[in-house]
């Protein structure tokens, strides 16, 4: 092998270092802006797919894509909303467009998880008459999942993830007015479901 030209070598290294510095800056910013939302993104993916391995794949893909297109992220806007939109698009491409079915829905896993959480019904002494406090995590979860997807989605984005209507409208690609009315109708349906549970426990919901 030829002895490497020392000048060329140095130049090459300088080039590498400056490239890396740029890359490094991008990484730091990416970690600060995007990676901090990993848990919430995974949680959303899991609720969408209801399957842990599909959820992991979705999140992986989302971050890969987000990193690649990080330059197109508008600085100063909500990065979490940007990531959610990428994730949602990935989800549609993966499971809808190619009419591929998501992996087997792991209801058992979710059920187990909710069962492992302490039954809050036992420690609500002061709110005995309040049927809402008697609801179990699992029941609220089931009620939410019994809703048509267009309603569940906006409730999740609004109540759980705390996005504004404008951000949600952008994510679901519908006007704000649509988001508003979907939330209204979705919540109405959800209330009916929850009241169904309350009746099951013998709470009187006539006055509600």
């Amino acid at each position: 092998m030829d002895k490497p030209d020392p000048t060329h070598h140095t130049k090459n290294r300088e080039k590498k270092e400056s490239l890396s510095r740029e890359e490094r800056q991008k990484q730091l910013e990416f970690q600060h802006e995007a990676v901090v939302h990993l848990n919430t993104l995974y949680n959303y993916a899991l609720h969408l797919t209801m399957n842990p391995s599909d959820a992991e794949d979705l999140v992986q893909e989302t971050y890969l894509k987000a990193y690649r297109f990080f330059n197109s992220f508008e600085r100063g806007t909500n990065c979490k909303a940007w990531l959610f939109k990428i994730l949602k698009n990935n989800y549609i491409n993966r499971f809808r467009k190619n009419s591929k079915e998501p992996g087997k829905v792991d209801y058992d896993l979710i059920k187990d998880f909710y069962h492992s959480i302490k039954d809050t019904r036992t420690d609500t002494s002061e709110t005995d008459t309040d049927y809402f406090h008697s609801l179990l995590h699992e029941e609220v979860y089931q009620a939410l999942h019994s809703l048509p997807e267009e309603f569940r989605e906006v409730i999740q984005l609004c109540d759980i993830e705390g996005f504004t209507y404008e951000e949600i409208a952008n994510m679901v690609e519908s006007p704000i007015g649509t988001v508003r009315s979907r939330l209204y109708r979705g919540r109405k349906l959800l209330r009916e479901q929850l009241e169904g549970y309350a009746k099951k426990y013998g709470f009187n919901t006539d006055n509600i």
């Binding site: 890396s20 890359e23 490094r24 990484q27 990416f30 970690q31 990676v35 990993l38 848990n39 919430t40 993104l41 995974y42 949680n43 899991l46 842990p52 992991e56 999140v59 992986q60 971050y63 890969l64 990193y67 998880f113 909710y114 959480i117 809402f132 609801l135 179990l136 995590h137 029941e139 609220v140 979860y141 939410l144 409730i155 109540d159 759980i160 919540r187 959800l190 209330r191 929850l194």
Partner: peptide
């Protein structure tokens, strides 16, 4: 009702393996 949803819907945390792989993705270079 809004409060109920916020309180009763559990937020799942990302598994460690996923965290590691995302961290690796952004520190690869």
């Amino acid at each position: 009702t809004k409060m109920i949803i916020r309180e009763k819907i559990i937020k799942f945390k990302a598994p460690q393996a996923l965290i590691s792989s995302i961290m690796q993705l952004t520190s690869f270079s």
